[in-house]
Design a binder for these strands. Structure first.
Lengths: 256, 256
DNA sequence: CGTCAAGTTGCAGCATGTGCAACGACCATT
DNA sequence: AATGGTCGTTGCACATGCTGCAACTTGACG
């Protein structure tokens, strides 16, 4: 809606792919160098962009601080974390929490608990999920009104990660209908051949799905059948989170 | 430099303090509601801002994704991490990595390895460091040209966290001179009474300090004297990171 | 049913952002 | 050392697109 701001903000994802110099930024924005310069300067003053010694620009550290504060405002995550950790403790597998935000066509992981190497745990948080195959993505999209589901399904690409990846919009919509009905979802080798997931939804007080959680494990550790036996446990955990989340309905300033 | 973008970006730190509605945003920006609306809409389209059901705005998940990609491009962190983990493995204490970015008056932790509860490890990453007392902050600031050091020292506040906190600009500058000369730094109960740290700098190819790392431990585990015996180990680790970081001098597209 | 508060829209005026062209700094090449 | 080229930077005239106003819509409350 605002051209100037729109252009300025378009620089951020551009720089996220790697450092770029003034000329490159101007080219990819389709504006004059002097225009790009002014935009970059403004971003720089706010610390969102950093200029390294070779004069190329990259994303700045302030972005960090903001993202940090943003996540602290996500109450679902805060409430869910102990439950995720407990679940991980019980079954030993990787546990994910993901959300979908309206007009984005992305589902993002916002938390992850890994069994083996907890040190690297946050390496994937914030990364977009493979939206057409991931169990958590199916749950989040399945909850949308049908019209919206259809619109999105047609906008998406359907990459063939494996032979079991969702092939097209029709198949995806069918899968969403199934997921919506049964209240849980799976991804059996649809993203990586040897990885399976089971997932369950977290619901707010109004019954709408606000987040989704999943347990993932490679074939070599447990078979798909074995993983499915964890479904009741996963659903129980998700329900517990839902209860706690919608119980404290006013999540802010609630001091009984 | 660009009024519109400047205003739009000012909304972000404002929302970082917590959700706000249109009127509040307009007030705090000092602009008309319709102007604020257009800015917020633009931010929303880029996913930096999210509109919750009560129509109030908050920071969006896209910030995450961006910060995530940004951190992956921060090569220091990538190179340093295995060294930090090894050091942690050897001594068992908490290990930090921090950077300082030019025109900000902030030092930020960009990595952390904790001994006891690695699961919560990233909770502090991205948070600003207590700049007047932290050992890593001293190292990063001590490397700046004298004029800049003085300017910054005078801009800072000197909160009295404990009786041993740096009291004022003069004391801080003196400490920076010492740190600069000896090439390492400590914080002995300056931030929290019972916590001590020793830190060493990571240098780039040109010799400038690009990051700083520290080992922290509470009094009850090891005394300050015992912690100081780790200094050689810390310095060796930092030097190893420096070598690796400046060795692969062209960190991008370097395929021999 | 009426009042009030908060969000939204269309519009006229002009502040502000835009692209151009010229300048300066730096590097590589001869 | 001189020259040509690339890239970042600056000042300026123009008109684009941003701004604030005022009127309209929506929803909550009594």
């Amino acid at each position: 809606m605002s051209q100037t701001v729109d252009r300025a903000l378009s620089i951020l994802p551009l720089l996220a792919q790697g450092p770029a110099d003034l000329g490159q930024v101007a080219d990819r924005l389709g504006v004059h160098k002097s225009t790009a310069l002014r935009l970059l300067r403004t971003l720089h003053e706010h610390g969102l962009v950093y200029r390294q010694q070779d004069q190329r620009y990259r994303l700045g550290a302030r972005l960090f601080a903001l993202a940090q504060e943003a996540v602290e405002n996500l109450d679902v995550r805060e409430i869910a974390h102990p439950h995720l950790a407990a679940l991980n403790n019980e079954c030993g597998h990787t546990v994910h929490l993901a959300v979908y935000e309206e007009n984005e066509v992305e589902v993002l992981y916002i938390d992850k608990v890994e069994s083996r190497y907890p040190v690297r745990m946050y390496s994937r948080i914030g990364k977009p999920v493979a939206i057409t195959v991931a169990a958590v993505a199916k749950l989040l999209l399945a909850d949308l009104p049908e019209a919206e589901r259809r619109t999105i399904a047609e906008k998406l690409d359907y990459p063939t990660y494996t032979s079991r990846s969702t092939p097209n919009a029709a198949a995806f919509l069918k899968e969403l209908a199934l997921v919506r009905e049964q209240g849980w979802a799976t991804d059996l080798g649809g993203h990586e051949e040897s990885i399976n997931c089971v997932a369950a939804p977290v619901r707010g007080a109004d019954g709408r799905v606000v987040a989704a959680m999943s347990v993932s494990a490679p074939n070599v550790v447990v078979t798909a059948e074995e993983l499915l036996t964890l479904l009741p446990l996963v659903r129980r955990t998700a329900d517990a989170i839902s209860r706690e989340y919608s119980g404290n309905t006013p999540p802010k300033e609630a001091r009984a």
